[in-house]
């Protein structure tokens, strides 16, 4: 266990191991999410309340889920950066923050478009939409701070502090936004909670959620590899890799 943990600190070892996992992640992720999406779009029954517009759920929920858990992962990586000063953790934060922004944007966009047929307006100051907007600001802050420092170490540790402060705040923000929402808006705007979602609906949803998690793993590994190549460019193994490895080695990371 501890040996694994120490190895994880070595960018070179991580580069190799990531390359071994990536094809599986990509394949399984694509398979699961495409199956789920096709199932959800073509075969799942219609919702009796919202009609066909509910089919947006099959991408809205996975992106929203993932956007939130990616922020949690970033905060955990921040703790690792501060406590164990592990390079790979910071590489993760750096590579994954833009992915988080894309996911948050997607969740916001799909939520807004879904709102039009359901609530009659593109943007409603709904508690969940507002929390996602705040999450977007948190992500942008992390990226902005990371780019503001030219020194990698300082940037890494500052971003780690910010991510941890943000994660402490997330429950407070969520609670306050819920509270504010019930204060300002009548409950009619709530998404109708379906107490018993039929299996033909939640199984494809689950497939897409799992698939997007795997795809996130792939893109995270891929971007981390790029970041490692950039940072370790003066080391011997990267030079050898670039000189001898050829395209396939660099593309899939030695798969």
């Amino acid at each position: 266990m501890w040996q694994f943990f120490h190895k994880l600190g070595s960018p070179k070892w991580f580069y190799g191991i990531a390359g071994r996992f990536m094809p599986w992640l990509l394949g399984a992720g694509l398979l699961l999410s495409l199956c789920g999406i096709v199932w959800g779009l073509l075969f799942a029954p219609q919702d009796y309340l919202q009609g066909n517009s509910y089919r947006i759920i099959f991408i809205h929920v996975p992106t929203a889920f993932l956007a939130q858990s990616v922020y949690m992962m970033i905060a955990v990586a921040g703790v690792i950066t501060l406590v164990w000063k592990m390079k790979v953790a910071d590489v993760f934060v750096r590579s994954v923050a833009p992915v988080g922004v894309v996911l948050t944007l997607l969740a916001l966009f799909t939520g807004a478009v879904w709102g039009k047929p359901t609530w009659g307006a593109y943007w409603v100051w709904d508690a969940r939409l507002t929390s996602m907007l705040i999450l977007l600001f948190l992500y942008l802050g992390i990226i902005g701070l990371g780019y503001a420092y030219s020194d990698e170490k300082t940037a890494a540790r500052s971003v780690a502090v910010l991510a941890i402060v943000g994660v402490v705040n997330i429950p407070i923000i969520k609670y306050s936004v819920d509270w504010w929402n019930t204060l300002h808006q009548p409950a009619t705007f709530r998404i109708t909670e379906k107490p018993t979602m039929p299996a033909e609906m939640w199984v494809p949803l689950l497939l897409v959620v799992l698939g997007t998690y795997l795809l996130f793993g792939w893109i995270a590994f891929y971007r981390m590899q790029t970041e490692i190549l950039r940072r370790e460019r003066r080391t011997r193994w990267v030079r050898e890799l670039v000189q001898t490895g050829g395209q396939s080695q660099l593309k899939t990371g030695g798969a």
């Binding site: 947006i56 992106t63 997607l106 891929y222």
Partner: peptide, 26 residues
């Protein structure tokens, strides 16, 4: 989709477009 088509297909379009762009940019 009984009138909901534009909304659903815009969402799926944005989903694939943005994720594709992300992968391409990476």
């Amino acid at each position: 989709m009984e009138g909901h088509g534009p909304y659903v297909w815009t969402c799926y379009g944005a989903f694939f477009l943005l994720l594709g762009l992300l992968a391409w940019y990476s």
